[in-house]
């Protein structure tokens, strides 16, 4: 095996593990929603793992990311603590937001996630703001903003693109185009479905990538990060992907006539994790027993995180008014 391939296989293993952590975690969360253990809304990222993974593996620990309502995957891929995420989704005091925020309001400051807003488009303004801060502070830190196709319908999307382009800020717009906003397909909401073209208008380098191909996303991410790091301005990445589960919760949304079994199956056949694993098989990138070992470790890690969440206490009611203001 050549030097490069062994170097790459370490990266591919990392990608495989990162995507599998998200997949298994989200499956477990879905089960806990089904069983009633999780009360609040949980928007699952199953099927889209390659986007968060590919981009986040191109980022540094101190780089910022922003997400929205469907951000468990972003949190995990950037390196946030899994047990604290699980506990937050369970509404527990040990959660990353101490049970105040829940699934849609997650934070991992130590790895650059400053907190997710659940309003569609909520990441644009603050995301661009952190990029401006990095510039003003003389740091080569970059910001990646993850958002859905639906978010490109909010006016603030264009306002943020404009300002970021005007000041060539170190920011990467990562559009996760999964074809749906809640119950509506993109064709019912926009006259075009080539969302990267929106950014081209502002002369922002923009590219559409197969969002289920983690290596392609990663390569695109590396180029975008490089550009931002060198102070050459923003990049727009449109990653074409699909969420396997319904808009919210573990169900598939097939029964309510929103999408077809065939459509779902065609995307399941393009599973980002299987894609990568098959490729690694083909090029002989696995050491013997390695994949199984990762699978076991990830299963164990998820079980531990869910167990931790389950056993943790809820916040004490006497703390209701904590944190409204900084003392």
């Amino acid at each position: 095996m050549t030097e490069t391939l062994s170097g790459d296989s370490a990266l591919w293993r990392a990608m495989y593990r990162a995507m599998l952590r998200i997949r298994r975690f989200e499956e477990a969360i879905g089960d806990c929603v089904e069983s009633g253990e999780i009360i609040g809304p949980a928007h699952l990222y199953i099927g889209e793992e390659a986007v968060a993974t590919g981009v986040c593996l191109a980022l540094r620990r101190d780089d910022f990311i922003f997400g929205a309502h469907r951000s468990h995957g972003h949190y995990l891929a950037k390196g946030g603590d899994m047990a604290a995420l699980a506990a937050e989704i369970f509404g527990k005091a040990t959660g990353c937001s101490e049970g105040r925020g829940g699934s849609m309001h997650i934070i991992a400051r130590d790895v650059g996630l400053l907190g997710t807003s659940a309003l569609v488009g909520g990441g644009f303004g603050p995301g661009v703001g952190t990029a401006l801060a990095s510039r003003l502070q003389g740091r080569d830190r970059v910001t990646a903003i993850f958002f859905g196709d639906g978010a490109t319908e909010e006016g603030i999307f264009f306002e943020a693109l404009n300002f970021a382009a005007l000041h060539h800020l170190p920011v990467i717009f990562v559009c996760e185009n999964n074809g749906y906003s809640s119950h509506l397909r993109i064709q019912e909401r926009q006259p075009i479905d080539t969302l990267y073209e929106h950014a081209a208008v502002y002369r922002i380098p923009s590219i559409r990538v197969d969002g289920n191909d983690v290596r392609a996303v990663h390569q695109t991410g590396l180029e975008a990060v490089d550009r931002a790091r060198k102070d050459q301005g923003p990049t727009f990445i449109e990653a074409m992907t699909y969420r396997w589960r319904g808009h919210v919760g573990p169900k598939l949304d097939l029964d309510v006539g929103l999408r077809t079994r065939e459509e779902l199956d065609s995307w399941i056949a393009r599973c980002p994790i299987e894609n990568l694993a098959n490729f690694m098989d083909e090029v002989g990138a696995w050491n013997p027993g390695e994949r199984q070992a990762i699978d076991r470790e990830v299963a164990q890690e998820v079980a531990t995180a869910i167990g931790f969440a389950r056993q943790s206490p809820r916040p004490d009611p006497s703390e209701l008014l904590w944190h409204v203001y900084q003392d």
Binding site: A93, R314, L320
Partner: peptide, 8 residues
């Protein structure tokens, strides 16, 4: 603001 956890 409204909290998440049912206890709150």
């Amino acid at each position: 603001p409204a909290p998440c956890s049912t206890s709150l």
